[in-house]
Design a protein around this nucleic acid. Structure first.
Lengths: 207, 207
DNA sequence: GCCCAGGGTGAGCGGGCGCTTAGCGAGCGG
DNA sequence: CCGCTCGCTAAGCGCCCGCTCACCCTGGGC
């Protein structure tokens, strides 16, 4: 159960950047707990218990419960931005790059649903400073997708009425996968990624 | 501020079915608080305070804090289902009915964002029985939209690879409006409704 | 063998939570 | 003008929260 959360493509083991080991185990426990119950409904005793430690151990590695959420949010958003950036800057037509971006972004939200849930839906539980920092990362995600769509429009490959609105809709569609995707459901992350890539190409008039 | 939340088209005053007046004021206060902070982060003292009452007054009209969420969720889902059902059963081509359904559903999520947020995102805070009841209403919402899409496919108006997946994506797109829509933002609910109706028609290949 | 640094624990503090209860006072039939 | 009803309040109960602190155990340098 503790090794269930990997990255979208299985590149690097998840949360490898968090050290030492005890801090990583606590963070993974927090991700699972926040995803299941939400930030406010999760107790520090629950997090420590999942990591096999006493409640006090949490405060050796993190100043507060909110710092845990902040760390999770920052690492998660960095990963999401990395996925979109990689797709946006590869070679290929705008349609190919948009399909790649949506496909891999959706695979991450479906496969790493536990992490994605926390990253995408617990943002409001952060304090003002931390939230502002995360929102900046979000705007960069938006910019990457909008960039691809604008290039497609400029090249005459896409037919879009409202670039800003369509960008928002595309991201919204991908993000909401984290809310409804069920590992035991009828689709694999790959299947949802492929379906969504097709749907998004239709949305921008590239089909 | 207390009259801010109306229905999508301004048909009936919101929450008119909740009586007596004190119970309705408490429920409206709860909707606002849950939408702002989430169910678990909202205290019964906060709800009562917003309604101008003492903390104990809440328990004259509701057995528990969860009963408030349950009532809000049931009424909200009933309204959502009503919107979709009305659009699905009117006269017109499948494309017209789908555009109507998406447009009005999105207008409700954008205009009544406060309510929609609670209804769509605080579901997991309900107990098993209450959640099961609400999930049944959700499946009916899904069935209404899937019905329109199936008719469009049967009539040869739509070109859809995966009816079930596309239905889910359409609903997901609409629901997520409640997460990002901002009343002070660049769009009105009507504009988002129109944009989304166009995007969904493209998704089903009816453009 | 001794010491020290540092990750870990058990116990517990102050406080705020959901919820209860005893009683108050306005409205009203008789 | 009594007295009953009933919506509401003030006070507070028991609980568990986030977080702290004094102490312990273990492993590596000398």
């Amino acid at each position: 159960m503790s090794t269930a959360q990997d990255t979208a493509g299985g590149e690097t083991p998840a949360w490898a950047e968090v050290t030492p080991d005890a801090a990583r185990r606590l963070l993974i426990a927090a991700v699972e707990a926040f995803a299941e119950r939400g930030y406010h409904a999760t107790t520090t005793r629950d997090i420590a218990g999942r990591a096999g430690m006493s409640p006090a151990a949490l405060y050796i590695h993190y100043k507060t419960k909110e710092e845990l959420l902040h760390r999770i949010s920052r690492i998660g958003h960095a990963k999401a931005l990395d996925i979109l950036r990689t797709a946006a800057r590869r070679e290929g037509t705008p349609a190919e790059r948009l399909a790649d971006a949506v496909g891999s972004f959706v695979r991450w939200h479906a496969g790493g649903r536990t992490t994605a849930r926390v990253v995408q839906y617990e943002l409001d539980s952060l304090g003002p400073d931390a939230r502002a920092e995360i929102l900046a990362l979000r705007r960069q995600c938006d910019a990457e997708v909008r960039g691809i769509i604008e290039e497609g429009v400029a090249a005459g490959d896409f037919d879009v009425l409202d670039v800003k609105g369509t960008t928002l809709a595309v991201l919204s569609l991908c993000i909401d996968v984290a809310r409804w995707f069920n590992v035991d459901g009828p689709w694999t992350p790959d299947e949802v990624g492929a379906l969504y890539a097709d749907l998004v190409l239709r949305m921008v008039g590239a089909a």
